[in-house]
Write a protein that binds this DNA or RNA. Structure first.
Lengths: 223, 223
DNA sequence: GCCAATGTGGCAGTATCTGCCATAATGGCA
DNA sequence: TGCCATTATGGCAGATACTGCCACATTGGC
């Protein structure tokens, strides 16, 4: 049933926030903070409903309702209901992107990439820290929900293009081919994907392995 | 709150679809031949419209219309309009699956996988043969159309699970871990993806490189 | 030539997503 | 403090994607 009456619309009518589709990392004004908060609330509502009812049975209207916003507003924050479940991955991506800026253009692409990834993963070393817990939670959901898996891949694919281009700029020197950069990136990303999957699997099995270690051994095996 | 309606389990994603499920390769009766023909016609119509108007601007109704069938029937052949553009990849997958049956369980997973992929790619060695031409055409489209790229990834993701399981069975021996199989598969697949991309890029640039060679050198570089 | 199986089309209904417009809140500035 | 440009929000309409259901036609086997 489309459109249900907006119950709690009024409860947060004072939510606006400053501007800008992009998130300025530097000076978060009031509006920006509001915006982030709303975004977070939507994600939490989405994750909760996905867990309880499954992704299929959860509608955008349901999420919007639970988050106290209208459906229209939901689509101003996320492009689809699946996207709303991936804030942890967006954080990861942000960290990755920041890490890529530290790359040494004179180094070996593969080694540099692996270093950056390893470093980013350190942020998830403590399985009990909020960052790791969120990431684990979402990934558990993803394991069970093909829709979310697909959404994640799509998300990654969208970003890959940009990242590869950025890398090409950075490594723009003779002797390093297009093919080589792409290859380095894709294979690194593959190892990372597997590491995440193994991490989640083992944690679900009760083991307390941490992500950086798993990644390190996966990397080892891959060579 | 979300619908609790049980059904929808398959709603809008990767249910293999009525037809893709099983295509009896052995004895194609009249019905089966008709079915394949219809499927092909739909795909051709879809590809043509996608090329001419773009994926976004092409509707399922439009495709169905161009193929001379009803919308309802379209959805009995494909689960989405994007799927209709990927027959070449489905053929590739079929060849791959057949190849996987020839794997030697006593061998090295990585080497065996690479051998199979290399073999499958031989089917696309001649850039002027219909198989290669179709594949090139679709991949050119995919390069320009994020929607198609996403659809392909989703398609691959759906299949990956099954393939990895099959591989695990086949390599089910001590000393070979879950992690190792996954890793081998994902990294091989990554190299293949890159090879395809490079192939298309170079052909668009007027070069006549062939797929197996590109794959071979990519594989080389990856080690 | 009959029958069971299967393909097809039409219809209704739900869900996703977007454009448009009116309104409300905000933050800066005089 | 009060005004204004900016921007967030909500509601609505509408296009499109997709599914279940039912009736009808075609097919292939006997």
């Amino acid at each position: 049933m489309p459109q249900k009456s907006p119950i709690s619309g009024a409860s947060r009518t004072d939510v606006p926030g400053p501007s800008t589709a992009e998130l300025p990392a530097a000076a978060p004004g009031l509006r920006e903070r509001r915006r982030r908060q709303t975004r977070t609330e939507i994600s939490q509502a989405a994750l909760r409903l996905f867990q309880e009812y499954g992704v299929d049975a959860t509608t955008v209207d349901g999420i919007a309702n639970a988050a106290g916003i209208s459906q229209r507003t939901f689509f101003r924050y996320f492009t689809s209901k699946e996207e709303a479940a991936l804030p942890a991955h967006q954080d990861f991506d942000a960290a990755l992107e920041a890490g890529l800026l530290t790359i040494d253009p004179a180094g070996d692409p593969r080694e540099e990439l692996e270093r950056v990834y390893q470093q980013v993963m350190q942020g998830y070393a403590d399985n009990d820290a909020p960052q790791a817990r969120s990431m684990l939670l979402v990934n558990q959901l993803i394991r069970k929900e093909p829709l979310l898996r697909a959404a994640l891949l799509k998300h990654n694919a969208t970003r890959t293009t940009g990242l590869v281009d950025a890398l090409m700029d950075r490594f723009g020197r003779d002797g390093i081919s297009d093919l080589q950069i792409r290859l380095a990136f894709e294979t690194c990303a593959a190892v990372v994907r597997v590491a995440f999957e193994v991490w989640v699997t083992r944690r679900e099995a009760g083991r307390n392995d941490n992500l950086p270690d798993i990644y390190a051994s996966a990397r080892q095996l891959a060579h």
